[in-house]
Amino acid sequence: MHAIVIDDSRAMRLILRRIVGQCGFEVLEAGDGRAALDLLGGLDTVPQLALVDWNMPNMDGLEFVAAAREDARLRDMTLVMVTTESEQSQIVRALAAGAHEYVIKPFTAEAMIDKLALLGLVPTGANT
């Protein structure tokens, strides 16, 4: 299984790489939405999971999610926003744009794994 981590913070990419790596994913990284779309466009197999920050230069996470929803090739990719944006209205916007789940920073590793279990991407109870 493959995952792509899209975040302009190298520190956050490293944390997310470690957590989803422990769940058995091979991890790709991109620093913004535009770079992620370019990277994904050149891949033969689309990752099952994208972890997407919101506030990034060039193309933000909301724009990325909307673009990914429009792209038939990326249809089966599960989109999880991982962001400090935590106003109710912002979460609703992200879901309306097509995000499947949402993790608010700060998050614990266990919380991230719980969300992946909710999405059926890791077995339930992988966390206990």
Partner: peptide, 19 residues
Amino acid sequence: DMTDVMGELANIVGGNVKS
């Protein structure tokens, strides 16, 4: 590493304040 992590800490605290 130190610079990136300090920046991310400010980002997380700032983002939570923003909300």
